[in-house]
Design a protein around this nucleic acid. Sequence first.
DNA 1: ACGGTCGGGACTGCCCGTTCCT
DNA 2: AGGAACGGGCAGTCCCGACCGT
Lengths: 244, 244, 244, 244
Amino acid sequence: MVRQERAVRTRQSLIRAAAEVFAEEGFGPASLTAVSRRAGVSNGALHFHFASKQALAQAIEDQAAETFRRIIGAGEGPGGPQAAPGGALQRLVDVTHQLIASLAQDVVVRVGFSLRGDVRWPGRSLRLEWQRWVEQALRCAEREGRLAAGVSAGGAARTIAATTVGLEVLGGADPSWLTDGQVAGFWELLLPGLADEGARRSVSPRPTGGAGVPGGAGGGGGGSGGVPGGGPSQTIVFPANETD
Amino acid sequence: MVRQERAVRTRQSLIRAAAEVFAEEGFGPASLTAVSRRAGVSNGALHFHFASKQALAQAIEDQAAETFRRIIGAGEGPGGPQAAPGGALQRLVDVTHQLIASLAQDVVVRVGFSLRGDVRWPGRSLRLEWQRWVEQALRCAEREGRLAAGVSAGGAARTIAATTVGLEVLGGADPSWLTDGQVAGFWELLLPGLADEGARRSVSPRPTGGAGVPGGAGGGGGGSGGVPGGGPSQTIVFPANETD
Amino acid sequence: MVRQERAVRTRQSLIRAAAEVFAEEGFGPASLTAVSRRAGVSNGALHFHFASKQALAQAIEDQAAETFRRIIGAGEGPGGPQAAPGGALQRLVDVTHQLIASLAQDVVVRVGFSLRGDVRWPGRSLRLEWQRWVEQALRCAEREGRLAAGVSAGGAARTIAATTVGLEVLGGADPSWLTDGQVAGFWELLLPGLADEGARRSVSPRPTGGAGVPGGAGGGGGGSGGVPGGGPSQTIVFPANETD
Amino acid sequence: MVRQERAVRTRQSLIRAAAEVFAEEGFGPASLTAVSRRAGVSNGALHFHFASKQALAQAIEDQAAETFRRIIGAGEGPGGPQAAPGGALQRLVDVTHQLIASLAQDVVVRVGFSLRGDVRWPGRSLRLEWQRWVEQALRCAEREGRLAAGVSAGGAARTIAATTVGLEVLGGADPSWLTDGQVAGFWELLLPGLADEGARRSVSPRPTGGAGVPGGAGGGGGGSGGVPGGGPSQTIVFPANETD
DNA sequence: ACGGTCGGGACTGCCCGTTCCT
DNA sequence: AGGAACGGGCAGTCCCGACCGT
């Protein structure tokens, strides 16, 4: 099968258009007509690339998952954020910033995260994947001895996951919920209860090293295209994530 | 206007049925047929009580707002939670527990909170109202000198609001997010960064004083299975939440 | 449930319109839009009365079955055409004429007979029912000793059934296949091989006694209403068909 | 034009696949996708060979017509079956057997015969051609003085045509209608009323002379390809019909 | 020449929210 | 309050035409 170049472009624009429409109207109410019109292709073209509305949603989620995994997986071997410079907690903070920034920049990621909540869906959601990663990071910090006394990794992970979900949901209507400042404010409030005295001082609630979504272009159109606002500057190279 | 008793019962069962259907399928995809069938009334009857789908949603939200205001407004004069026994922070913690419990118990409240996010809607949302109330409570605590140094009431209110929204959203699919334990865990994590040293010791992350949703015959209009019936009497004064 | 009078009229006109459209375009290609337009009702009204296209077809067949059973069942007790005046063979000839006349007059009957052939369908077809009745009649004649030597009731029934099916199919495009003359010609050709010498003389290939479809009005609009064209002449007055 | 060998094979498999799909689902409902999938070629390939769905149907009918004409026209000059050995009636019986056998063996023939009935179509149908041939044969027999008294060639031809159409239609769902036995039974029943006393004895209701479909491979792939049953042996040349 | 990928409209069956008339 | 009817709109599918690789 020889994928023409135009085809992959059409596919991408359909995914993006679908994410935008889903974000504006919700998955259920959104009409495929609106999607194809926004993408500038015909109804038939849409169904050539995606057999059903569900398939379209699946594609969105897959692309979001790719971006998500690039964020959490940057620079670490299998097993999680064990050996991050600056410690696991700092890495958690940084990744949170990157994730939220990615949600702010890319409709596809945002919609990909929330789809499972809107529709009855089989399989595991990205939100759950994120929660598990947070828990891993916290367990890592626990092993490093940087967690405050009495803090359970699982419980804290749930709180953190809930907050990010809240930011994501609220950010859908008002992007100000998806800013670095908002995230930093959250960590400032949370770190004292989460980290032990030493970590409280060494861990910064603001992103260190490189913020922004690593990779980018490679994935699937990633953050580009959609919400360009403020994006470019964050593409500061991540010092120690020799991915690529 | 003296509403026939049967009429008000029908109305209530329609509201509840609608909330359930909306919760399961989302506002857009939900069909009024499903609502009327679940309520056990006819299509025509539904439209007799509610002129449109939007009106049905409005009624849900109104009822949720009533419950919500009973929770936050219990026992305090106009102006907010300034003079709560045990301090504003403790009251904030308690109200949070009550709110989440109410979300857990009552579909109508849960749907009432999330409707504005699903649909394009005029007017202000309950979520925003909640955020404002949290901010008020924090400002109150600030005046009481119980806030940690460097904490801004507005910023902290946003974080807290985000977390509750997250719990609400996640709780829609998995009720375990709407438990007292979950809320307590959240406050345990947050209080160290929010309260000054004294308050950190005096404020309990668990609900104190009167638990449960105040007001309402049998649970706040809400919780229980059916129709709460005579609403008017709910202005019951918040009985006793005098700290330990 | 009190069926309004208008409702039953709408239902009838939908069934008739559907039969006409199905007859002209075939079941598969026919569009429900064409049906509702021809019936003079809206698309929604159609789906109020018939949940699906299949349901519409079912209704057509049910109505055809009713007419069919009125034809074969007229004036005989359960068990078939055993005690027909003039003998079983004459009754077979007469019923054939009535059936073909009914096919000529009423689109609903015609379509009802052919539907099972067009679509994949569960259940038994009217054609098969007709074949069985013919076989019964022949067995009856056999018991009366009027069958020619060497004629098997089952085999002859198949041939007769095939011919009527052929007339029905060809009559769909050209009504001249569904005339009394055509049927009489068929019986003239067939009787010498079918009946014994005596019956050959006593049985008339033309309808005796009562022609025309008995009943009619009662059932479902039966033969009336629809395609009057050419019909009038066949409405030979039925001398004695005090059906029920 | 030298057609590549693969091309003609593809074309044949498309025709056969189309006939099968049309037979199963009907012309209207059948999708070209199903046709191309069954033929094992791509959508584009189908449209390369056949510009439209109608063209595909046309090709089917043409091929069926070729087979049909080989059956009726085997070895006789223009004017019909005038001088068949055994008489025109015997030839009619034989040809009927061959035609029905051909319908039983080859989907293409079967579909080719029924297509005109399913769709609005320009041109004359094979069924009509068959009816005309039957009439010719009967007129021939009339001239030979073998028809029973009072039998009109035209009328009898219509009855015979109706029966064969009935067999063809019923045979689409149940092949037992297209057997030699069925046809023989039909002729046994019909001959006494059709032929005069002498012919009644000399004409056999079962096939005489060369059975099967003549021709075969030569023509247009006719019955070959799909249903191999007994094909090759049928190439018995029609012995002698030039006489007179 | 032959075939395949991609895309374009048009349309279908179904269903929905709503209104009219009892 | 209820049965009936209305229009509009949805997802999905179809038949087909371009434009490409062989």
